[in-house]
Structures are given as C-alpha cells and as structure tokens.
C-alpha cells in the first residue's frame, strides 16, 4: 500500500529563530501588532510504500529522526494517510 505523509519541521521553541523574528517585524510594520512568536520551519511531503499504517508511520518517524530534522535544533510532527 502507498501512504502519503505530511511532515512539519520547526526550530525548537527555546532556540532563537532569526527568520521568524525578521518576519514578525515585517508583520508589525504592516500594522499587525497583535502577532507574536513567529517561527519558521519546513513542510515536507512524501509518499511511502508500506504494509500498514503503523509500518508507514514507523518509516516516516525514522526518516525524520535520521535526516529530515536535526533533533538538537528542531522538532517534528507528521500525519500519514493512505493514498
């Protein structure tokens, strides 16, 4: 079976995210002062062949831990759906 995964990788909360900070300033310059804590990460989608939902999730988790995210600086979450 084929599965489709949507993965979000975000810088960890305690780490300064200069991109997010710069974008927050831009939003404030637009007058949107109520916006705070902008953080910028990556959205990754992929397809994976697996026998079950659990097996697909296990593969995606391994991909995140080994390559897609660096756990020292980033956290990740994902949703896996059958295609």
């Amino acid at each position: 079976m084929k599965f489709f995964a949507e993965i979000n990788v975000l810088p960890q909360k305690e780490i300064l995210d200069p991109q997010g900070k710069a974008v927050k300033l831009g939003l404030h310059n637009l007058g949107m002062d109520a916006i705070d804590n902008v953080r910028i990460g990556k959205r990754i989608t992929l397809e994976v062949e697996a026998d079950s939902q659990e097996a697909a999730e296990a593969q995606v988790k391994t991909a995140c831990e080994k390559l897609l995210a660096n756990l020292i600086m980033e956290s990740f979450d994902f949703v896996v759906k059958p295609l």
Binding site: P11, I15, L16, P18, Q19, A22, N70, I72, M73
Partner: peptide
C-alpha cells in the same frame, strides 16, 4: 556535526 562526530549544531546567524 551532522555526522555526529562533533557535538552541537550550527544555526542560522542571529542577525540573519
């Protein structure tokens, strides 16, 4: 550092 041969990471410069 990505290979785990040295500890830590190198993040985007604080001033971007």
């Amino acid at each position: 550092v990505e290979a785990g041969l040295l500890p830590g990471v190198l993040l985007r410069n604080d001033h971007q």
